[in-house]
Simulated assay, not measured.
Amino acid sequence: MNYVLEVLPSLLDGAKMTLQIFCWTLIGSLPLGLIVGLALISRFRLLKAILRFYVWLMRGTPLLLQLIFVFYGLPLVGLTLGRFDAALFAFILNYTAYFAEIFRGGLQSIDKGQYESAKVLRLTYWQTIRKIVTPQVVKIVLPSIGNEVINLVKDSSLVYVIGIGDLLRAGNVATSRDVTLVPLVMVGVVYLVMTAVLTFILRKLEQYYSYWK
């Protein structure tokens, strides 16, 4: 127990970095995913083609490879980012693509008659999206969004490859230094706690939106 208490502060510091990456990625990728999702069902063919290529590229290559490319590859073309900024850039690009596909599916599931009804009521396109379409889409896509949110918690451990002191890196350092697996067990427990809290929040959100049948 003394050893656990000795290692715990460094793990909690790493967990703070993990939570920062998690929160900023969600803040950046969710609204961008909705915008890209709307663009994917728009009438602008060139824009749709470009965004489809982007989504295909982000979903078809590993996040780890994208992270390495952003941090080590972009400086070759004169764009240098700090470790934290590079991690956020790669994560937001990756998760925006996944969220865009989720939102696209949700938007296309809305009956076209609702758009026509909104026109009869003289609602603008954005009023229709905000007041009629979005509440229904949120209910439809929430389970899929929840799965990606849980995955994001675990994917955040990939930032160790560019030297960011996240939770997993703190556990690896303690394991190598003290030649024991206890820190990694503690890392697993912390991840389980974070995912349990997120699962609880997501279930509450699903219950909140369940009144739309």
Rank of each mutant, 00 (worst) to 15 (best):
S42K: 04
G106H: 03
L8S: 10
N151K: 02
W56L: 08
G73P: 08
Y115I: 02
E206R: 11
W126N: 09
L30V: 15
Y72W: 09
K131D: 09
T61F: 06
P75H: 08
S144I: 01
L76M: 10
D13L: 07
L51V: 05
K213F: 07
A49V: 03
A87Q: 00
L51N: 04
F22N: 10
E6S: 07
N94D: 11
V173D: 11
A170R: 07
G146F: 05
G82M: 06
Y209F: 15
G188M: 07
M58D: 03
Q207V: 15
G28W: 03
Y72F: 14
F99A: 14
R52Q: 09
K48R: 13
P135C: 14
I129H: 02
L63F: 00
Y208T: 15
W56H: 06
L63M: 04
I145M: 11
S109D: 10
L63Q: 02
A87K: 01
F53K: 03
D155C: 04
R83V: 09
W56F: 07
Y208A: 15
I145N: 01
T195H: 09
A97P: 01
G82C: 07
L76R: 13
L26Q: 02
D13F: 03
V55M: 01
S176A: 13
I162L: 09
D85K: 01
R203C: 12
I68C: 09
I162T: 09
T180E: 02
A15I: 02
G78I: 05
K131V: 10
Y191H: 13
G163Y: 02
I102Y: 06
V133I: 15
L158I: 10
P9Q: 01
Y98V: 15
K213D: 14
A170W: 06
G14Q: 07
L64A: 08
Y115F: 12
R169A: 15
V120S: 06
L88H: 02
